[in-house]
Every structure is written in C-alpha cells, then in structure tokens.
Design a protein around this nucleic acid. Sequence first.
DNA 1: GGTGAGACTGCAAAGGTTTGCAGTGAAGAA
DNA 2: TTCTTCACTGCAAACCTTTGCAGTCTCACC
Lengths: 397, 397
Amino acid sequence: MEQPFALIVGTHVTATTLDEGAAVPVTIRDVARASGVHISTVSRTFSAPHLVNPETRVRVLACAEDLGYRPNRAARALITGRTHNIGLIIADIANPFFPPLIKAAEGQARHRDYHIFVADTNEDPVVEEELVHALAKQVDGVLLCSPRMSNSLIEQLSREVPLVVINRQVTGLPCVMMDVGQGARSAIEHLVGLGHTEIALLGGPRGSWTNREIRRSAAAAARTGGAELTVLGPNPPTEHGGGALAEQVQRAGVTAVLAYNDLMAIGLIEGLDALGVRVPQDVSVVGIDDIALSRLTRPKLTTVATPTAAAGRTAVDMLLQQDTDAPRGPRGAGRGTAAGARRTTAQVMLQTELVIRDSTGGVPSSGGPGAERVGPGPHRLADPGRPTAATGGVVAS
Amino acid sequence: MEQPFALIVGTHVTATTLDEGAAVPVTIRDVARASGVHISTVSRTFSAPHLVNPETRVRVLACAEDLGYRPNRAARALITGRTHNIGLIIADIANPFFPPLIKAAEGQARHRDYHIFVADTNEDPVVEEELVHALAKQVDGVLLCSPRMSNSLIEQLSREVPLVVINRQVTGLPCVMMDVGQGARSAIEHLVGLGHTEIALLGGPRGSWTNREIRRSAAAAARTGGAELTVLGPNPPTEHGGGALAEQVQRAGVTAVLAYNDLMAIGLIEGLDALGVRVPQDVSVVGIDDIALSRLTRPKLTTVATPTAAAGRTAVDMLLQQDTDAPRGPRGAGRGTAAGARRTTAQVMLQTELVIRDSTGGVPSSGGPGAERVGPGPHRLADPGRPTAATGGVVAS
DNA sequence: GGTGAGACTGCAAAGGTTTGCAGTGAAGAA
DNA sequence: TTCTTCACTGCAAACCTTTGCAGTCTCACC
C-alpha cells in the first residue's frame, strides 16, 4: 500500500532546501527560569491566576509572551484527565447534509476552547467502532453522527468514552434528534392538501433510525389523509439512489413522492426528467434536509428543513455539560471506585419545518381545487438553527 | 456567553439516569502485572515487537486484548515528540469545494495511523493564525488549505510547526497546487472556439492565490484568442457573490462568463435567469472546481475540474514524508542544536481539466460556425483524483 | 510581643509511556 | 572449561504539567 509520489503523475515538482529555524520547544521550565519563579507558579499563572501575586503574574506572563510559550495540552491531559478534544464521527463528509453540522460543532467547540477530531466512516459500521476505540483515549467525548452500528454496541462503547448520539435514539444515552417524523407528516399533509392520493415514499438506508421514523409517520399521515402510500426501498441515500428509482416511480403511477433526503429527491427529478416526466407538472416531489443545494436546482425543491447546525451545537453542549457534571481524571475517582457515577442524560428533539418551493403542485389533469398552489409560500426562517416552536415530538424513554 | 439549554427552545427533553460502568482506564502497568513482565516489555511489544520473545509477545498481547488495553497516545506523544495527529485548517467547511478534500485527507491520514483535527476559519485570517498556534503543540503538522493570511506570516508560522500549504504557492514551503491557470486557459479557449469575443471574468476573494492565477491566465488566453476580457471583482466566492453580479454582467454586454468557482457560476445563472437572460442561449457560463453540485443544476455546468481529493491525499503524504525525514522530539536534537536541519521541500502542481456540459454554447444570433456545439462532449475522467497527463504548469521557485 | 490569619510560593509526586543502559542466561566457539 | 555473543528483559530517567501540602512572610489584632 505504499503510495508515495508516484501518485502525482503528470505534475511539476520543484525541490528547494530551506533553512528552517530550530523550532525550539519552550516549556513551563523555560518560563520559570526566565522569570525567576518555580514552575508551579508558572503553572498557576495559567490555570489558577487568582492564586498568584499580581506582580509575579504580569512578570511571568511577560516572559511567557516573550518566549512564545504555549502550554502543552498533552502533558496537561496526562494529569488532569481531560484533553479538551472532542471526536466527531460522521458517516460521509461528502454528503452535503453533514458539513453544516460539522461547522457548527467545530465553532461551538472552539468557542469553549475545545478542538474537534473529524473522522469519516464511509457508512461502514466496523470503521465506526474502530474509530471510537482509537479516539477514546484522545478525547473527552465523542459525537456519533447518524451511526450505522447497533444500539447495543453503542451502549457498550459508551462505557469506554462519553458519547452523544446524533440522529438516532438510544435508550439511556444523550441523544440529539431532529423531528423528521413531524416533517414527514407535514410533507404528506401538504401533498394531500394539493389533492394527491397516490404517493410514493423513497426509503433510505437500512440501519437508519431516521428512515424508520419517516416511514412510520408518513404511513400514518397518509392513512389519516385518505391517501395510499407506496414504499420503495431501502435505497442508498444518494442522488444515484434516487435517480435509479425514476422508472419504478413512473410505473407505480403515483402523482407525488416523498424522498428520504434531498439528494435522492434531486436524483429522482433528474431521472424523471430523462424519462420525460416533468416535475411538478406530472409528479410532485418533496425532499428532506433542505441542504443548500435544494435551493439551487430547478425546480427548486420543496423539502423538510432539518436544523443541522443547531444539532451540532446542541450535541457539543450536551457533551461538555455531561463532562462538567462528572469530572474524571486519575486524581479524583481512583480506579477502585467501582460502580461508576450515576449520570443524568437528556434526549433532545429538534423541530423541523416544511419549506414549500417549486417541486410540488396540484394533481395533473385534475381540474379540482388541488390544481392550485395551496398553503403558505416559502416561509423558511432565516436561521434554521433557531427553531421557534415545538413540534411535539414524543420521546419514549 | 453562557448558552446552556435555553437554546433548545421548543424541544422535548427527557432525562433519565444511567448506571454507567466505571470506565476503568487500563494502562500499560495493568497489562504488565497481568502478564508478569515489566512495563518496558509491554511497551516494546507494541512499539518494537521484534525485540521481545515471541512467547512473551503473544502472552502480553493476549493480556492486553483481554483487558482492552489501548496505548495512551498523549503519554506517548509526551516522550516521542510525535502526536500522530494532523491539523487541517479550512476556510469554510460548508463550501462544497472542501469536503472531498477533507474526506480524502482524513482517509489517507487514518490509513497511515494518523488522526485529523479539522478547524474552520470562516475565511478569517486572524482565526487562521490563532488556530495554527493552538494546534501546533498538538499535531505533527498542519495542512493549510486556501489560506487567506500573508505569505510572510505563513513562513513565520512554519517555524513553529511543519506546514503544507494547499492552493497557494509559498516559496520555501511544501505546497500542493491545482493548475487553475491551465484550467482558465482551457476555459477561455473553449469559449473563443465557440465564437465568443466579449468575455467577463468573475473574480474571487482578494487574498486568494487561485484568484490571481486565474486572472493572469485568463487574460493571457483572451489576448491570444483575440477576445476582450472584462474583470468583475473581487467578490465573495459564494453563490450569493455570483448572483449579485447578474445585472453587471448583463450591462457589460458580454456573451460569455468565466467564474472564479462553481458556486459563483451557479449563483450567476440563477441571477441571470431572474433577469430573463437564458444560459447558454444568451450567455455562456463556465465555472471552476467541478463540485458535485455542478452536475445537478440545470443547465449542467461546464466547468474546470480540480483534483481536490488528490490534493488532500498528496498534502498528507508530503507532510508525513517531511515528518519522517526530519524527526523531532526531545530525545533527538537537543534544544541547543541551534540552526535547525536543512530540509527538502517539494512543490506539486496537480493538473486540471475542462469538463464541457450544458452551460456553454455558441454566440447568440450569430449564424456562424460558433453557433454549433464545438469540442468533445463531456469527457470527465471517472476519478478526478487520478490525473493522467501533465498540464505543464510552471512552478517558479 | 505574641498570636493567628492570610497571601504567596516552593516542593515533590503523579500521570502513562519510551528508551539507553545494564543485567541475566543460554548457546556457541575456542 | 572459559570466553564471547546474542536474545531478551528489567531498571530508571525523562517528557511537561498539575496540585496537595507545607513553608515563609507580612500584617492586623489583642
């Protein structure tokens, strides 16, 4: 698996030599020497300033500044037991659903003086587990985003390192979920309101909690609205996965489709277009997620907005909260403390919101009231991260 | 700035208590005790297996497995001086140009047993510098992606921690660049070939090396092709930035546009559409980057594909290469070694490729040959990360 | 003047690992 | 038998911090 520079076929490589300054690592000891105090005083200057004489403090700080001293977090972690790092494990960074979440989490973490390890599992549950192990010793907690492994494995791993689960409900663990159930319901109601009675649901990946929620709620809403729901899937949650279903959708004879996510919806629209089926004239399509892309396609996608950024922020907060509640570290609870601390865990459900754009319309060749656009226009909030009203999602626990 | 759970307005919160296993941290000492050897032997079992008796080795490994031992990387870093971590500093994770790069870098790093810190600067050079400092002690090197700070500052920072610069040329530092110059040239040639003689260039952000390259090459190519190039900008490199230029483009009376990136190109197309200007019938538009999105808009975007994934992989390789060449760590070169090691640094230019799709066409109301589609159809390689032929970019050094 | 309190500061252990050096024992050579 | 070599293992220092404890000094108060 050696793959050195042969990879860079057809490139221009220039080599130069550089006289590089001797990157002297300056430690707390250097600062102590320079300012004429003991290292412990320097340490306190940074970690407990109120314990040191103001005069001394400024002198130490000046020396530290001078020498360019920065505390070594690894050494600090060794003794305090906290690394000030967080792990973020993601199924697929390239899926446009995730970057806003990563960005929000990273910002929130940095704001609290934490750094984030990002890891991509390629939707592989085995890699997922491996990564939790690999990261465990190096972080104060892990954010598990749309995990594909089993709940029991997640519970087991949570004994190794504090976990916050995003986009999945695991009993006994802190979870951040988005109320896709409510979202799916709104979407179906919107379609029913437009007069559609034959609706297809494009299912997502098999292990997905989100997928189950959507399916359940959509089925219920269809029943209530007197519409028939045909479920197609499971499918890969990609543009390709959606496109591949175009023919099936056409054959099913439905007039409206709800897709597991925007990517699939967009893929489907592409696929239908290739078959000569027009959206929304012939078929209405609704996505879920409201990724940035969904505003840029034509027609613009009607979709259920999920508060991904808020989820990222909230998850970080929950992790850090939990971290403060039950401090670990070798100093405190010795290893003999046996049955560990009881901990309070919260599960949070974030609201979703239907955003009506141009990919949904009335039923074709039906002169009825459904032919007109129904419902409010685009009413997306400026910041999806700040939901304003409860969706009333129920959290069993 | 306290922002606890008030943020989670309108959510359903459930609290449960959980009896959590005591997360016993198992150390090398536990393994030593269990297997009846000294800790140094356990250490060697992992870091220099050939030095320990095969029998002992299997016994130690068995015990380690049993106890679930994982070496503490922080402690190891403390003494070896290598953290096995890499920092990746990105201007904006939410910009779809970056996720493929991040993904590739992360994969390559993990493959080499490294983890990646990802940080987002929000296009802010100050945050950029801050992050390098913050990460310096915690990583073996930093990948600086499309930096916005000055070259001199970058050079200075490189004395603190090994740096690899992506999407920018800094003398004396290892750099990975994409040959956007050649890309811009191809794009202009393509447009000229279609008969366009009045072309606009939508500039990108001010501090961008890429922007300068594009501008220079595009200007040269236009001159050669006998076309006039109008530069509009600088602009924010976003969909918005592109859309805001629609009127200006219309007024400029050009028949073709090259945009700094796909996002701007797509924004522009949106904006033009709102003005009743059709693409490609009235105006041809070319983007740069070939983000996934550009295949999904209508019309599909003609663009210059940049090998972002390859750039991520290459950068990681270069960093690790350099890291192996000049090992640091307290043990080796004492702090007194004065003027540090001379180092060999390479600069790599990755090729780009024009991908012709549907957003470019002949000059409007000109019956000439330019009205027909010219050039090969879409000829994008399956894997953009594996360029096949040199573009002949020149690297001054 | 003696006492106590309080504010600083220093000492040293501890955290988990790596690694140069020295020690042990056995095998092979002379 | 004695010496050398070699493979393996143990010892202890070192990496950089944090932190409980104890010591010193000043100052107010009785």
